Computed example of a mutant assay.
Amino acid sequence: MTAASRPDLSDINLDDWVERRLPRAWRPYTRLARLDRPVGIWLTLFPCWAALIQASHGFPDIRQLLIFSLGALLMRSAGSTVNDIADRKFDGHVERTRFRPLANGQINILQALSFLAVQLALAASLLFFLSPYTRLVAICVVPLVFIYPLCKRFTHWPQAVLGAAFNWGMLMAWAEVAGHIPLGAILMWAGAIAWQIGYDTVYAYVDVKDDTRLGLKSTAILFGRHGKAIIGVFYGVAVGAWALGGWLLGMSLPYMLGILVIAAHLAWQTGRIDLVRPEVSYRLFLANILTGLLLAGAAVLGTL
């Protein structure tokens, strides 16, 4: 299929920098790691940075910032590879995912598994730079990374599992910087999970017709026509958890002003949700990059 006939909802642009600038052999692996679509990387990084800032009560150590940034990049990329391996027989039948490398036959399963092994090995190498306690916390997330792609077969809540795994770096940040994980940090992590259930449900509405036809499950299918209100509730839970968590962590008053800005932004998003317009859902999903940036900014304000 040519770029001209590419469906508007495809998450791969067949005329982007990957096609124009990279050697042909590199392209499928770049897409498998989602380096051409870095939104997920930013959505992983910003909450992790926020936790590092809060745990450090100021600008984090450059070494820690670099290690956690690389870790978020590698684990997000590895998680995407695991997801595409698990969904390779479904992705070809979904409008948004039909051009992914495994779905369209650009690479085979053995090549994808070999690439995954390299990603995991690189991520594991970072553990040598972390404390024993942080390594233990890090290892605990591995089952979630592999379970998530299978969840859509048996539960309507894969977004919750993804949220727990996606934001695990927040717990690791506290383990590394403070040597323990306080209640406030757990609340911040729980808030990030609620936020992700909200924005990933918005994203799931893009695929709801294809997922229903294929017998897959998601929060979008579960919420149905009530999705707008329920997403708003999850956004409200996120804001509340971040406010209470920040208070327990000793964040100063400007932090709460940052949380109010986040609340206003998420309220705006909720008001814009249109469940029957996938292109709007996709744009609102992307808008959460700003939410993550605001959370990291609020953490900075809270340490002043």
Results as ranks from 00 to 15, higher is better:
R6W: 03
N13W: 10
L14I: 08
V18C: 06
E19I: 13
R27N: 07
L35H: 01
I41T: 14
W42C: 09
W49D: 00
W49V: 06
Q54D: 00
A55F: 15
G58S: 11
F59T: 08
P60V: 11
L65V: 01
L65K: 04
L66P: 00
I67G: 12
S69F: 06
A72D: 01
R76M: 10
R76L: 08
G79F: 02
S80M: 14
F90G: 05
H93K: 11
R100H: 02
P101Y: 04
P101R: 02
L102N: 05
A103D: 12
G105A: 05
G105D: 07
N108R: 08
I109E: 13
A112Q: 11
S114T: 12
A121R: 11
L127Q: 02
F128Q: 09
S131P: 12
P132M: 13
P132W: 06
P132V: 07
Y133G: 01
A138Y: 02
C140V: 03
C140I: 11
P143Q: 08
W157H: 06
A160T: 04
F166E: 01
G169P: 08
L171Y: 10
W174E: 06
E176F: 01
L187I: 01
M188C: 13
A190C: 14
G191S: 08
W195V: 10
W195R: 07
G198W: 15
Y203L: 12
A204T: 01
K209S: 15
D210V: 06
D211N: 04
D211S: 08
G215K: 13
S218Y: 06
A220E: 12
H226T: 08
H226P: 00
A229H: 11
V233D: 07
F234P: 13
Y235R: 12
G236E: 11
V237H: 04
G246V: 07
S252A: 13
P254T: 04
M256H: 13
L257V: 11
G258W: 04
L260E: 08
L266M: 13
L266I: 09
Q269H: 15
G271S: 10
I273K: 05
V276T: 10
P278C: 02
Y282G: 03
R283I: 05
R283Y: 00
T291K: 07
G292P: 09
L293F: 15
V300E: 01
L301M: 12
G302T: 01
T303E: 07
